[in-house]
Amino acid sequence: MVDLDEDARRRRASAWRRCSFLVGLVAFLFGLELTPWAQRWFVEPWTTALAQISTSLVTLFDSGVTATGKVIASTSSGFAVSIEAGCNGVEATIVLIAAMIAFPAPWKHKLMGLAAGIVAVQGLNILRVISLFYLGQWDYKVFEWAHLYVWQALIMLDVLVVWLIWVRTLPGARDDRAPPSPPAAATASA
């Protein structure tokens, strides 16, 4: 019982250390993102590329859409969206990177997880940009709600889900045919 308590304390301390490291890493990477150098050489080109990719996908079914820099515009309605900070998926990617680095795992798994995870996060972000582009033309109030609240939460949920899937693929995760841990044991080891 004493050993179990000691083990639980150690695990709790380790979890808090990891959380603190995660928060510090997110703040550091976010600070790095805000530097003029990162904005010029990474964020701006990426945001422009995101507008181009989204427009390329949209033109498969709607030819009246153009992209100029980070702005996507409809030639028929005149409506346009500009992809700004917070909507380019960079912050979500930073959180994913920090979460995978902060979690103890072999570097090979971290790199594989990051590659797949970034594709998943940015893929959903493209869906966000395209959906907002059409929501804005349909109803501005709905666009505002989706833009400011709903999609922000969904993107972070995507990051969390990607991280959960990645954690489940790490060495040490049990086979799915094995029975789940008894809740009491799991609680004791938390």
Binding site: V23, V95, V167, R168, D176, P180
Partner: peptide, 28 residues
């Protein structure tokens, strides 16, 4: 850009460690 989405996720992970351990124990 960071706190409104990251802090709920972190608070959830911290308050659901047992759930996450059970979830991790079951592979896809």
């Amino acid at each position: 850009l960071i706190l409104p989405t990251v802090t709920p996720a972190i608070v959830w992970v911290v308050t659901h460690r047992a759930f996450l351990e059970r979830m991790r124990g079951l592979t896809v």
